[in-house]
């Protein structure tokens, strides 16, 4: 392998890159479970009318998500796998020094959760930031930065096909209520709430676009509109901008509350990350 660029951006030395090639080659094999299998294995009763945004997409985009060799989100999963093994921060520790990849199975499907010695929930990106601060003594990664999204995508990928399973933690209840309140609150110049579109009018067409039920089944997602991977926060911001509401800053607790509510609402639905969405 050879990488040459006039504006070089590769922080890895050649031996480091070589070392991780075999693991990378295994990626498609390790993560071969298809979404169809995930659907079949999910615990969904016949009366469950919830739909993933996946089900509202055309066959071409479903195929793009299902095929790991075609899903652009897998490029970030691969980057995440490399970062996972790369020492970072003053402690010079890699994620892999504390966690096995197998331990990550199911983790993304249960976040946001309240970490030890805390009373507030954090989402998966927040958990990664916390690990960086406390264990790696590394600087925070910028919201929506490629490294943060890639690490999140790599961890989230380990939960593909598993049912979304928020923790059974009573302390989450007030945050879920707060999230629901935001979800139902009219906001912005257009005076709309999340619920007006995604509960009351899901399945109808907003312009030519089918309004999904807003289940966060595939985050981080590769959104064609972004031409990049992005977080649930970024997607929520898009909706806020759409209704001409002031978006919360990325650090706002409001997003985590919304995420707690939305993941609870999607409980039991199969996790798809990295999802592909229009």
């Amino acid at each position: 392998m050879k990488v040459s660029r006039s504006k070089s951006q590769s922080p890895l030395t050649l031996p480091e890159r070589m070392r991780w090639r075999p693991a990378l080659a295994l990626l498609p094999v390790v993560f071969a479970a298809s979404f169809a299998m995930a659907q079949a294995g999910a615990d969904k009763s016949a009366s469950d009318t919830r739909r993933s945004g996946y089900q509202d997409m055309g066959a071409a985009l479903q195929k793009m998500q299902d095929d790991d060799t075609a899903n652009p989100g897998m490029l970030y999963v691969q980057l995440g796998e490399q970062l996972w093994a790369k020492p970072a921060g003053a402690a010079s520790k890699a994620c892999a020094d504390c966690h096995s990849v197998a331990d990550m199975k199911g983790v993304a499907a249960r976040y946001p959760a309240i970490p030890e010695n805390s009373d507030r929930p954090i989402d998966l990106e927040g958990r990664i930031q916390l690990c960086r601060a406390s264990h790696q003594q590394a600087e925070r990664l910028a919201p929506e930065s490629r490294d943060l999204l890639s690490l999140a995508a790599f961890v989230a990928r380990q939960s593909r096909g598993l049912p979304i399973a928020p923790p059974d933690d009573a302390r989450l209840a007030p945050f879920r209520s707060e999230g629901e309140a935001i979800y139902r609150r009219r906001q912005g110049q257009l005076n709309l709430s999340c619920a007006i579109c995604h509960d009351d009018n899901a399945g109808k067409k907003l312009a030519g676009v089918t309004i999904p039920q807003a289940h966060p089944t595939g985050y981080p997602i590769y959104r064609l509109e972004w031409q990049a991977l992005g977080s649930l926060k970024r997607r929520l911001r898009n909706c806020l901008v759409g209704i001409r509401a002031e978006a919360y800053p990325y650090e706002a607790v409001d997003y985590v509350a919304l995420e707690v509510f939305l993941m609870g609402r999607a409980k039991g639905m199969p996790f798809e990350a990295p999802g592909v969405r229009p």
């Binding site: 312009a207 030519g208 509109e225 911001r237 909706c239 759409g242 229009p278």
Partner: peptide, 9 residues
């Protein structure tokens, strides 16, 4: 090609 209903921030 469907036009996006809401545009990116």
């Amino acid at each position: 090609v469907t036009l996006a209903a809401c545009v990116e921030d």
